[in-house]
Nucleic acid binder design. Structure first.
Lengths: 194, 194
DNA sequence: TTTTTTGTTGATTGACGAGTCAATAAACTT
DNA sequence: AAGTTTATTGACTCGTCAATCAACAAAAAA
Protein backbone atom coordinates (compact mmCIF):
# COMPACT_ATOMS: atom_id res chain seq x y z
CA UNK A 1 0.00 0.00 0.00
CA UNK A 2 2.73 2.49 0.75
CA UNK A 3 2.75 5.12 -1.95
CA UNK A 4 5.76 7.34 -2.27
CA UNK A 5 5.83 11.06 -1.63
CA UNK A 6 3.65 10.75 1.42
CA UNK A 7 5.79 12.92 3.66
CA UNK A 8 4.34 16.36 2.85
CA UNK A 9 0.80 15.02 2.88
CA UNK A 10 1.23 13.29 6.21
CA UNK A 11 2.94 16.29 7.70
CA UNK A 12 0.19 18.63 6.57
CA UNK A 13 -2.46 16.30 7.95
CA UNK A 14 -0.65 16.10 11.27
CA UNK A 15 -0.29 19.85 11.56
CA UNK A 16 -3.97 20.35 10.82
CA UNK A 17 -4.93 17.64 13.29
CA UNK A 18 -2.74 19.22 15.94
CA UNK A 19 -4.48 22.56 15.61
CA UNK A 20 -7.87 20.93 15.65
CA UNK A 21 -7.12 18.85 18.73
CA UNK A 22 -5.56 21.68 20.68
CA UNK A 23 -8.52 23.87 19.79
CA UNK A 24 -11.01 21.16 20.60
CA UNK A 25 -9.66 20.24 24.00
CA UNK A 26 -8.53 23.79 24.73
CA UNK A 27 -5.21 22.66 26.09
CA UNK A 28 -1.80 21.32 25.21
CA UNK A 29 -2.59 18.12 27.04
CA UNK A 30 -3.30 16.24 23.88
CA UNK A 31 -1.59 12.97 23.20
CA UNK A 32 0.36 12.26 20.08
CA UNK A 33 -1.93 9.28 19.62
CA UNK A 34 -5.03 11.49 19.60
CA UNK A 35 -3.48 13.74 16.99
CA UNK A 36 -2.25 10.87 14.87
CA UNK A 37 -5.61 9.16 15.06
CA UNK A 38 -7.39 12.29 13.86
CA UNK A 39 -4.88 12.56 11.06
CA UNK A 40 -5.56 8.95 10.15
CA UNK A 41 -2.32 7.24 11.05
CA UNK A 42 -0.44 5.59 13.89
CA UNK A 43 1.37 7.59 16.54
CA UNK A 44 4.62 5.97 15.49
CA UNK A 45 4.33 7.64 12.11
CA UNK A 46 3.86 11.01 13.71
CA UNK A 47 7.06 10.49 15.63
CA UNK A 48 8.73 9.29 12.47
CA UNK A 49 7.94 12.48 10.58
CA UNK A 50 8.28 15.06 13.32
CA UNK A 51 10.64 13.47 15.78
CA UNK A 52 8.61 14.48 18.81
CA UNK A 53 5.62 16.22 20.22
CA UNK A 54 7.26 19.58 20.67
CA UNK A 55 8.36 19.79 17.05
CA UNK A 56 4.80 18.98 16.06
CA UNK A 57 3.46 21.79 18.21
CA UNK A 58 5.94 24.23 16.75
CA UNK A 59 5.05 23.21 13.22
CA UNK A 60 1.39 23.80 14.02
CA UNK A 61 2.22 27.18 15.44
CA UNK A 62 4.23 28.16 12.39
CA UNK A 63 1.31 27.12 10.25
CA UNK A 64 -1.22 29.25 12.12
CA UNK A 65 1.14 32.19 12.11
CA UNK A 66 1.89 31.86 8.44
CA UNK A 67 -1.79 31.55 7.53
CA UNK A 68 -2.47 34.69 9.50
CA UNK A 69 0.44 36.48 7.85
CA UNK A 70 -0.72 35.47 4.40
CA UNK A 71 -4.22 36.70 5.10
CA UNK A 72 -2.92 40.06 6.26
CA UNK A 73 -0.69 40.41 3.23
CA UNK A 74 -3.56 39.51 0.96
CA UNK A 75 -5.87 42.03 2.57
CA UNK A 76 -3.24 44.75 2.30
CA UNK A 77 -2.91 44.29 -1.45
CA UNK A 78 -6.35 45.68 -2.14
CA UNK A 79 -6.19 48.53 0.34
CA UNK A 80 -5.20 52.06 -0.57
CA UNK A 81 -4.26 54.63 2.02
CA UNK A 82 -3.44 54.30 5.72
CA UNK A 83 -7.04 54.16 6.94
CA UNK A 84 -7.99 51.42 4.53
CA UNK A 85 -4.83 49.47 5.27
CA UNK A 86 -5.40 49.47 8.99
CA UNK A 87 -8.97 48.38 8.50
CA UNK A 88 -7.69 45.61 6.27
CA UNK A 89 -5.34 44.38 9.00
CA UNK A 90 -8.18 44.35 11.49
CA UNK A 91 -10.51 42.55 9.09
CA UNK A 92 -7.88 39.92 8.46
CA UNK A 93 -7.23 39.48 12.18
CA UNK A 94 -10.89 38.86 12.87
CA UNK A 95 -11.77 37.11 9.65
CA UNK A 96 -13.87 33.94 9.89
CA UNK A 97 -10.74 31.94 9.06
CA UNK A 98 -8.69 33.15 12.00
CA UNK A 99 -11.39 34.06 14.46
CA UNK A 100 -12.69 30.54 14.94
CA UNK A 101 -12.90 28.99 18.37
CA UNK A 102 -10.55 26.27 17.34
CA UNK A 103 -7.88 28.65 16.07
CA UNK A 104 -8.33 31.09 18.92
CA UNK A 105 -7.97 28.24 21.38
CA UNK A 106 -4.78 27.24 19.64
CA UNK A 107 -3.43 30.78 19.92
CA UNK A 108 -4.09 30.85 23.62
CA UNK A 109 -2.18 27.66 24.08
CA UNK A 110 0.70 28.90 21.97
CA UNK A 111 1.08 31.69 24.49
CA UNK A 112 1.32 29.05 27.17
CA UNK A 113 3.84 27.10 25.12
CA UNK A 114 5.90 30.25 24.72
CA UNK A 115 6.47 30.26 28.47
CA UNK A 116 8.40 27.00 28.33
CA UNK A 117 9.68 26.63 24.81
CA UNK A 118 12.04 29.37 23.62
CA UNK A 119 11.34 28.72 19.97
CA UNK A 120 7.63 29.26 20.57
CA UNK A 121 8.42 32.51 22.32
CA UNK A 122 10.54 33.56 19.38
CA UNK A 123 7.74 32.85 16.93
CA UNK A 124 5.20 34.82 18.92
CA UNK A 125 7.63 37.70 19.27
CA UNK A 126 8.04 37.75 15.50
CA UNK A 127 4.29 37.91 15.05
CA UNK A 128 4.02 40.78 17.52
CA UNK A 129 6.83 42.70 15.92
CA UNK A 130 5.37 42.29 12.45
CA UNK A 131 1.95 43.41 13.56
CA UNK A 132 3.44 46.41 15.30
CA UNK A 133 5.50 47.35 12.30
CA UNK A 134 2.51 47.03 9.99
CA UNK A 135 0.37 49.22 12.21
CA UNK A 136 3.13 51.72 12.72
CA UNK A 137 3.65 52.10 9.03
CA UNK A 138 0.08 53.30 8.55
CA UNK A 139 -0.39 55.06 11.83
CA UNK A 140 2.52 57.40 11.39
CA UNK A 141 0.93 59.41 8.61
CA UNK A 142 -2.25 59.61 10.68
CA UNK A 143 -1.00 60.43 14.13
CA UNK A 144 2.68 61.24 13.88
CA UNK A 145 4.57 61.06 17.15
CA UNK A 146 1.81 59.23 18.98
CA UNK A 147 1.89 56.35 16.51
CA UNK A 148 4.07 54.22 18.77
CA UNK A 149 1.78 54.16 21.79
CA UNK A 150 -1.20 53.78 19.51
CA UNK A 151 0.25 50.72 17.82
CA UNK A 152 1.08 49.14 21.16
CA UNK A 153 -2.39 49.79 22.49
CA UNK A 154 -4.07 48.48 19.40
CA UNK A 155 -1.93 45.35 19.46
CA UNK A 156 -2.86 44.69 23.05
CA UNK A 157 -6.52 45.32 22.26
CA UNK A 158 -6.46 42.78 19.46
CA UNK A 159 -4.89 40.17 21.72
CA UNK A 160 -7.42 40.98 24.41
CA UNK A 161 -10.34 40.55 22.03
CA UNK A 162 -8.94 37.16 21.08
CA UNK A 163 -8.57 36.22 24.71
CA UNK A 164 -12.16 37.14 25.47
CA UNK A 165 -13.40 35.12 22.55
CA UNK A 166 -12.05 32.04 24.28
CA UNK A 167 -14.44 32.44 27.17
CA UNK A 168 -17.51 33.54 25.26
CA UNK A 169 -20.13 31.05 24.29
CA UNK A 170 -22.10 31.43 21.14
CA UNK A 171 -20.68 31.88 17.66
CA UNK A 172 -17.69 34.19 17.09
CA UNK A 173 -18.46 37.70 15.93
CA UNK A 174 -15.54 39.17 14.06
CA UNK A 175 -17.56 42.21 13.02
CA UNK A 176 -18.03 43.31 16.59
CA UNK A 177 -14.34 42.92 17.29
CA UNK A 178 -13.39 44.97 14.25
CA UNK A 179 -15.85 47.65 15.30
CA UNK A 180 -14.32 47.76 18.77
CA UNK A 181 -10.80 48.15 17.44
CA UNK A 182 -11.92 50.78 14.93
CA UNK A 183 -13.62 52.74 17.70
CA UNK A 184 -10.34 52.70 19.59
CA UNK A 185 -8.58 54.16 16.60
CA UNK A 186 -11.15 56.68 15.52
CA UNK A 187 -11.38 58.32 18.88
CA UNK A 188 -7.61 58.61 18.98
CA UNK A 189 -7.36 60.13 15.57
CA UNK A 190 -9.96 62.82 16.10
CA UNK A 191 -7.73 65.50 17.56
CA UNK A 192 -5.82 67.08 14.68
CA UNK A 193 -3.22 69.23 16.39
CA UNK A 194 -2.42 68.07 19.93
CA UNK B 1 4.99 17.00 66.17
CA UNK B 2 1.48 17.31 64.80
CA UNK B 3 -0.03 20.47 66.14
CA UNK B 4 -3.75 21.03 65.85
CA UNK B 5 -5.44 23.64 63.72
CA UNK B 6 -3.08 23.01 60.87
CA UNK B 7 -5.73 22.80 58.18
CA UNK B 8 -6.09 26.47 57.32
CA UNK B 9 -2.33 27.00 57.45
CA UNK B 10 -1.61 24.03 55.23
CA UNK B 11 -4.32 25.00 52.80
CA UNK B 12 -3.07 28.55 52.54
CA UNK B 13 0.48 27.34 51.99
CA UNK B 14 -0.69 24.97 49.28
CA UNK B 15 -2.68 27.65 47.50
CA UNK B 16 0.27 30.01 47.56
CA UNK B 17 2.62 27.29 46.37
CA UNK B 18 0.24 26.42 43.55
CA UNK B 19 0.21 29.98 42.26
CA UNK B 20 3.96 30.21 42.55
CA UNK B 21 4.57 26.96 40.73
CA UNK B 22 2.11 27.67 37.94
CA UNK B 23 3.63 31.10 37.52
CA UNK B 24 7.17 29.77 37.67
CA UNK B 25 6.74 27.00 35.12
CA UNK B 26 4.22 28.99 33.10
CA UNK B 27 1.94 26.03 32.68
CA UNK B 28 -0.57 23.81 34.40
CA UNK B 29 1.76 20.87 34.02
CA UNK B 30 2.91 21.04 37.59
CA UNK B 31 2.82 17.95 39.72
CA UNK B 32 1.09 17.80 43.06
CA UNK B 33 4.42 16.72 44.48
CA UNK B 34 6.15 19.86 43.25
CA UNK B 35 3.49 22.01 44.82
CA UNK B 36 3.50 20.08 48.06
CA UNK B 37 7.25 20.20 48.27
CA UNK B 38 7.28 23.96 47.84
CA UNK B 39 4.63 24.19 50.53
CA UNK B 40 6.77 22.05 52.79
CA UNK B 41 4.77 18.85 53.03
CA UNK B 42 4.16 15.52 51.34
CA UNK B 43 1.95 15.18 48.30
CA UNK B 44 -0.32 12.87 50.26
CA UNK B 45 -1.16 15.73 52.57
CA UNK B 46 -2.11 17.93 49.66
CA UNK B 47 -4.52 15.26 48.51
CA UNK B 48 -5.77 14.88 52.04
CA UNK B 49 -6.72 18.54 52.32
CA UNK B 50 -7.90 19.26 48.81
CA UNK B 51 -9.03 15.91 47.53
CA UNK B 52 -7.38 16.34 44.17
CA UNK B 53 -5.36 18.44 41.83
CA UNK B 54 -8.28 20.16 40.18
CA UNK B 55 -9.72 21.34 43.47
CA UNK B 56 -6.32 22.75 44.33
CA UNK B 57 -6.17 24.67 41.07
CA UNK B 58 -9.62 26.07 41.62
CA UNK B 59 -8.75 27.16 45.13
CA UNK B 60 -5.68 28.95 43.79
CA UNK B 61 -7.81 30.63 41.19
CA UNK B 62 -10.35 31.77 43.75
CA UNK B 63 -7.52 33.18 45.81
CA UNK B 64 -6.04 35.22 42.96
CA UNK B 65 -9.47 36.46 42.00
CA UNK B 66 -10.37 37.39 45.53
CA UNK B 67 -7.06 39.20 46.10
CA UNK B 68 -7.70 41.16 42.95
CA UNK B 69 -11.25 41.94 44.00
CA UNK B 70 -10.12 43.11 47.40
CA UNK B 71 -7.52 45.38 45.90
CA UNK B 72 -10.06 46.95 43.59
CA UNK B 73 -12.52 47.48 46.41
CA UNK B 74 -9.81 49.03 48.56
CA UNK B 75 -8.73 51.38 45.81
CA UNK B 76 -12.31 52.44 45.19
CA UNK B 77 -12.78 53.49 48.79
CA UNK B 78 -10.45 56.45 48.48
CA UNK B 79 -11.62 57.58 45.07
CA UNK B 80 -14.20 60.30 44.52
CA UNK B 81 -15.91 60.82 41.22
CA UNK B 82 -16.09 58.64 38.10
CA UNK B 83 -12.73 59.64 36.67
CA UNK B 84 -10.90 58.91 39.88
CA UNK B 85 -12.73 55.64 40.37
CA UNK B 86 -11.85 54.35 36.94
CA UNK B 87 -8.24 55.29 37.46
CA UNK B 88 -8.35 53.48 40.77
CA UNK B 89 -9.58 50.31 39.08
CA UNK B 90 -6.79 50.52 36.52
CA UNK B 91 -4.18 51.16 39.19
CA UNK B 92 -5.38 48.16 41.14
CA UNK B 93 -5.37 45.98 38.03
CA UNK B 94 -1.77 46.84 37.28
CA UNK B 95 -0.53 47.21 40.83
CA UNK B 96 2.77 45.58 41.70
CA UNK B 97 0.83 42.92 43.61
CA UNK B 98 -1.23 41.73 40.67
CA UNK B 99 1.01 42.63 37.79
CA UNK B 100 3.81 40.24 38.65
CA UNK B 101 5.09 37.69 36.17
CA UNK B 102 4.11 34.92 38.52
CA UNK B 103 0.54 36.13 38.95
CA UNK B 104 0.12 37.07 35.32
CA UNK B 105 1.36 33.63 34.32
CA UNK B 106 -1.19 32.12 36.65
CA UNK B 107 -3.97 34.19 35.06
CA UNK B 108 -3.04 33.00 31.61
CA UNK B 109 -3.23 29.42 32.74
CA UNK B 110 -6.55 29.99 34.42
CA UNK B 111 -7.88 30.97 31.03
CA UNK B 112 -6.63 27.66 29.73
CA UNK B 113 -8.17 25.84 32.66
CA UNK B 114 -11.47 27.54 31.93
CA UNK B 115 -11.58 25.74 28.60
CA UNK B 116 -11.83 22.35 30.27
CA UNK B 117 -13.18 22.95 33.76
CA UNK B 118 -16.63 24.52 33.92
CA UNK B 119 -16.10 25.84 37.42
CA UNK B 120 -13.00 27.70 36.26
CA UNK B 121 -14.98 29.17 33.42
CA UNK B 122 -17.65 30.27 35.86
CA UNK B 123 -15.11 32.00 38.08
CA UNK B 124 -13.54 33.88 35.18
CA UNK B 125 -16.97 34.90 33.94
CA UNK B 126 -17.75 36.32 37.36
CA UNK B 127 -14.54 38.34 37.30
CA UNK B 128 -15.35 39.69 33.85
CA UNK B 129 -18.89 40.61 34.82
CA UNK B 130 -17.77 42.38 37.94
CA UNK B 131 -15.13 44.35 36.13
CA UNK B 132 -17.62 45.31 33.46
CA UNK B 133 -20.19 46.38 35.99
CA UNK B 134 -17.65 48.45 37.89
CA UNK B 135 -16.50 50.21 34.77
CA UNK B 136 -20.02 50.72 33.55
CA UNK B 137 -21.04 52.34 36.79
CA UNK B 138 -18.48 55.08 36.34
CA UNK B 139 -18.50 55.33 32.58
CA UNK B 140 -22.19 56.04 32.32
CA UNK B 141 -21.97 59.51 33.85
CA UNK B 142 -19.04 60.23 31.54
CA UNK B 143 -20.15 58.88 28.22
CA UNK B 144 -23.82 57.97 28.46
CA UNK B 145 -25.05 55.63 25.78
CA UNK B 146 -21.59 54.64 24.62
CA UNK B 147 -20.62 53.37 28.05
CA UNK B 148 -21.37 49.77 27.12
CA UNK B 149 -19.00 49.48 24.21
CA UNK B 150 -16.42 51.46 26.09
CA UNK B 151 -16.49 49.12 29.06
CA UNK B 152 -16.16 46.10 26.79
CA UNK B 153 -13.25 47.62 24.94
CA UNK B 154 -11.49 48.63 28.11
CA UNK B 155 -11.97 45.17 29.57
CA UNK B 156 -10.46 43.57 26.51
CA UNK B 157 -7.59 46.04 26.56
CA UNK B 158 -6.79 45.20 30.17
CA UNK B 159 -6.76 41.48 29.38
CA UNK B 160 -4.60 42.14 26.35
CA UNK B 161 -2.08 44.12 28.36
CA UNK B 162 -1.88 41.21 30.78
CA UNK B 163 -1.38 38.79 27.95
CA UNK B 164 1.45 40.81 26.48
CA UNK B 165 3.15 41.01 29.83
CA UNK B 166 3.54 37.26 29.71
CA UNK B 167 5.79 37.43 26.67
CA UNK B 168 7.80 40.49 27.60
CA UNK B 169 11.14 40.13 29.23
CA UNK B 170 12.39 42.63 31.71
CA UNK B 171 10.56 43.79 34.82
CA UNK B 172 6.81 44.48 34.69
CA UNK B 173 5.78 48.08 34.18
CA UNK B 174 2.33 48.72 35.59
CA UNK B 175 2.63 52.46 35.04
CA UNK B 176 2.92 52.04 31.30
CA UNK B 177 -0.10 49.76 31.24
CA UNK B 178 -2.19 52.22 33.24
CA UNK B 179 -1.11 55.01 30.89
CA UNK B 180 -2.14 52.97 27.90
CA UNK B 181 -5.58 52.24 29.30
CA UNK B 182 -6.04 55.87 30.35
CA UNK B 183 -5.13 57.01 26.86
CA UNK B 184 -7.82 54.73 25.51
CA UNK B 185 -10.34 56.31 27.80
CA UNK B 186 -9.32 59.93 27.46
CA UNK B 187 -9.51 59.93 23.72
CA UNK B 188 -12.97 58.41 23.89
CA UNK B 189 -14.22 60.94 26.38
CA UNK B 190 -13.05 63.98 24.50
CA UNK B 191 -16.08 64.49 22.34
CA UNK B 192 -18.81 66.08 24.48
CA UNK B 193 -21.88 65.93 22.28
CA UNK B 194 -21.69 63.12 19.71
C1' DT C 1 -6.66 5.43 80.41
C1' DT C 2 -8.85 4.15 76.51
C1' DT C 3 -10.74 6.09 72.44
C1' DT C 4 -11.36 9.26 68.96
C1' DT C 5 -10.02 12.91 66.17
C1' DT C 6 -6.46 15.34 63.61
C1' DG C 7 -2.07 15.46 61.26
C1' DT C 8 1.37 13.23 58.60
C1' DT C 9 4.08 10.38 55.45
C1' DG C 10 6.43 6.46 52.76
C1' DA C 11 5.21 3.09 49.92
C1' DT C 12 2.25 1.38 46.50
C1' DT C 13 -1.01 1.05 42.73
C1' DG C 14 -2.74 1.74 38.37
C1' DA C 15 -3.10 4.35 34.39
C1' DC C 16 -1.37 6.72 30.82
C1' DG C 17 1.75 8.47 27.43
C1' DA C 18 6.21 9.65 24.82
C1' DG C 19 9.40 7.62 22.30
C1' DT C 20 11.76 3.24 20.29
C1' DC C 21 12.15 -0.87 17.58
C1' DA C 22 11.68 -4.75 14.88
C1' DA C 23 9.15 -6.31 11.27
C1' DT C 24 6.46 -5.93 6.98
C1' DA C 25 5.52 -4.19 2.46
C1' DA C 26 5.48 -1.57 -1.54
C1' DA C 27 7.91 1.11 -4.66
C1' DC C 28 12.26 2.57 -6.95
C1' DT C 29 17.33 1.50 -8.47
C1' DT C 30 20.92 -1.11 -10.56
C1' DA D 1 16.81 -10.35 -9.23
C1' DA D 2 18.90 -8.35 -5.59
C1' DG D 3 19.33 -4.35 -2.95
C1' DT D 4 17.86 0.15 -1.31
C1' DT D 5 14.87 3.58 0.09
C1' DT D 6 10.29 5.04 1.84
C1' DA D 7 6.05 4.08 4.30
C1' DT D 8 3.81 2.01 8.05
C1' DT D 9 2.42 -0.16 12.33
C1' DG D 10 1.84 -3.19 16.65
C1' DA D 11 4.13 -4.14 20.50
C1' DC D 12 7.12 -2.76 23.92
C1' DT D 13 9.94 0.09 27.28
C1' DC D 14 10.43 3.31 30.57
C1' DG D 15 9.19 7.05 33.09
C1' DT D 16 5.87 9.89 35.41
C1' DC D 17 2.15 11.08 38.16
C1' DA D 18 -2.52 11.25 40.50
C1' DA D 19 -4.56 8.98 43.87
C1' DT D 20 -4.87 5.50 47.72
C1' DC D 21 -3.58 3.14 51.85
C1' DA D 22 -1.66 1.48 55.91
C1' DA D 23 0.63 2.99 59.60
C1' DC D 24 2.35 6.12 63.01
C1' DA D 25 2.10 10.23 66.28
C1' DA D 26 0.12 13.49 69.12
C1' DA D 27 -3.56 15.99 71.05
C1' DA D 28 -8.38 15.99 72.82
C1' DA D 29 -12.35 13.78 74.57
C1' DA D 30 -14.45 10.08 77.09
Amino acid sequence: MPKLGMEPIRKAALVQATITEIGRTGSLEVTVSQIAKRAGMSSALAHHYFGGKEALFLAAMRHVLSLYGAEVRGALLSAAGPQARITAILRASFSPTNFRREVVGAWLNFYVLAQTVPEAKRLLAIYQRRLRSNLLHDLRPLSGARAGELADGLGALIDGLYLREVLKDGPPDGEAAVACARAYLDSHLKEPSL
